[in-house]
Every structure is written in C-alpha cells, then in structure tokens.
C-alpha cells in the first residue's frame, strides 16, 4: 500500500503560543501542536495512551510534555512514552515554510 503524506496548513508559526500546546482538530483527528522553547514546532496525537488525557494541556519541558491527567512523560518529537511507563502516540511531521505551519497527514 502506498502512503502519501499531504501537508495541511494550520496557520502562522508566530500565532502559536510558545512552551504550550494547541489543540488542532482536522476533520475528526485531534492533534496537539507544540511550539517548544527553542521555537521548533512538533505535532502528536492529542490522546494520552494511558487514559486518553488531552496532551495539549500538559506542562511542556524541553522536548517533553507531561500528561495533565496522571503525569506520563511523552516525547513530542517521536511520541514515545518515557520510562517507567510504556507506549507511544502517533507523531506527525511538521514543516514551517515562510512562517506558515504545515502538518503532514496521510
């Protein structure tokens, strides 16, 4: 099966709040978009693998977000849950072109 990733424009980079998450719903898919302290933007699924916590509301530290419900630590780069918990959330490629932010979905 061939998968093609399509860019979806979600707005301007400067409009995203820094060190916080933003909930972006595309169709029925809910995505948490983070602008980190270093300015980089990352996107992961907005559902914690533990009990479905909304990750966009978590505390962001470096490249990690702490789930607001029970404090699981999750990498916003690759969606990997950090030890001692285990699991993974979907991560989505992000690109910024001329200040416009695109998320790639398949």
């Amino acid at each position: 099966m061939e998968k093609t990733l399509r860019p979806i424009l979600i707005g301007k980079a400067e409009d995203l709040p820094q060190k916080l998450g933003k909930t972006v719903t595309i169709g029925r898919k809910e995505i948490a978009v983070f602008k980190l302290e270093n300015g980089k933007i990352h996107a992961i699924e907005n559902r914690c693998p533990h009990k479905g916590g909304v990750l966009a509301e978590g505390i962001v530290s470096g490249e990690f977000v702490y789930c607001p419900l029970h404090d699981w630590k999750i990498s916003v780069l690759d969606g990997r849950v950090q030890a001692p918990d285990v699991g993974c959330v979907q991560s989505y490629p992000v690109e910024v072109r001329d200040g416009q932010v695109f998320i790639f979905l398949n």
Binding site: R6, I8, I10, T23, V24, T25, I26, G27
Partner: peptide
C-alpha cells in the same frame, strides 16, 4: 481557543 479545520 482550539483550531478547527474542515475535513480534509
């Protein structure tokens, strides 16, 4: 505010 985009 959350961002809501229409179905792709």
């Amino acid at each position: 505010e959350s961002l809501k985009l229409p179905v792709e």
